[in-house]
């Protein structure tokens, strides 16, 4: 079979809803796009540990301390599942990691904002994880088997992430005046960056059409964003926080909530590395990576020595 025929068979399998597995034939561009998208997803989980990790030592009760620690730990786990799935495409995790630390690879723009009060932790759970769940639920049906399975596992584990955030935010929004102030302030700061998480509008999203044809994604950025907004408006009302968008209004005909203009200039700047926390986040991750080098080397050296000794003994 030539490449054209293989491509047709491949597309037919996708259209039939079959999963593609690592050793199956796939177009080079499919493989490249998957590596880009999956590793970007993995980097986001890892960088995402930093803003929330900022509050582990200050969480206001032992319960919340353990919840937060377990959640941030889950993010390390999710990063690991995703790297593990990406590695099935024949790339090394080390190369992927170094590509975002020292090269051009991207991670989600949302993690380039600071966590200023404890309410930020609650809002990240509610909005940021809420948005991530919308996205990952779709990706759990992705055409690439390992990616779909990783997302399925992530979704199962992540349901508590959103719940704990929403639950605590509800308490704060209905709590003391200081708690209410923190809660609303956090919602104000995180709302727009959360909407940007779904990526640029469809007409400016270069990869979307292709990814949908290959069933890597099944919905467009704007579709996902809309379903998130519809759900979130109701949730905000229930706990008494206001979404900072004066243009937000319900459209009777479509049955959807229409939202105001997203500040896309800010999005493009942050994506290109020029946001409030890009430099600091990368610096923290580089530091961990570089300061861990001697540990990783020591463990390899020990393994080498041990193997040598065992070889000699037998």
């Amino acid at each position: 079979m030539d490449t054209k025929e293989k491509s047709d068979v491949f597309q037919k399998r996708i259209d039939n809803g079959e999963k593609i597995e690592p050793k199956d034939w796939m177009p080079e561009r499919y493989r490249k796009q998957l590596i880009r998208m999956m590793s970007q997803h993995a980097h986001s989980e890892i960088v995402g540990m930093l803003p929330e990790g900022n509050w582990i030592t200050r969480a206001p009760s032992l319960k919340r301390k353990m919840v937060l620690l377990a959640k941030v730990q889950d993010e390390a786990g999710h990063g690991l599942y995703l790297y593990s799935a990406t590695e099935t495409l024949g790339v090394k995790r080390k190369d992927l990691v170094e590509d975002y630390l020292y090269g051009k690879a991207k991670y989600s723009s949302i993690f380039n904002y600071p966590t200023l009060t404890y309410a930020d932790i609650c809002v990240i759970g509610w909005l940021v994880d809420g948005a991530a769940i919308v996205n990952q639920t779709m990706l759990a049906k992705s055409s690439y088997g390992p990616y779909a399975r990783a997302n399925l596992r992530i979704c199962k584990e992540e349901s508590f992430h959103k719940k704990q955030g929403y639950e605590m935010l509800a308490k704060m929004a209905g709590g003391t005046p200081e708690q209410q102030k923190m809660a609303q302030d956090a919602v104000n700061r995180w709302w727009w960056p959360t909407l940007m998480m779904f990526g640029p509008p469809d007409e400016e999203s270069p990869n979307s059409a292709e990814l949908i044809t290959w069933a890597v994604k099944t919905k467009t950025n704007d579709e996902l964003r809309q379903s998130f907004v519809d759900r979130t408006v109701m949730e905000a009302r229930k706990i008494g926080v206001t979404l900072p968008d004066p243009d937000l209004k319900y459209n009777e005909e479509t049955g959807h909530w229409e939202y105001g203009e997203i500040p896309w200039d800010e999005f493009w700047r942050v994506i290109k590395g020029d946001g409030p926390m890009n430099r600091e986040r990368l610096k923290a991750r580089r530091k961990a990576y570089e300061e861990g080098a001697w540990v990783r080397e020591a463990a390899m050296e020990y393994a080498r020595k041990k193997k040598y000794r065992e070889g000699k003994a037998s």
């Binding site: 995790r93 580089r286 080098a293 080397e297 390899m300």
Partner: peptide, 9 residues
């Protein structure tokens, strides 16, 4: 600073 090896999979 890049490193030249990683732990096996």
């Amino acid at each position: 600073m890049k490193t030249n090896q990683e732990w096996p999979l």
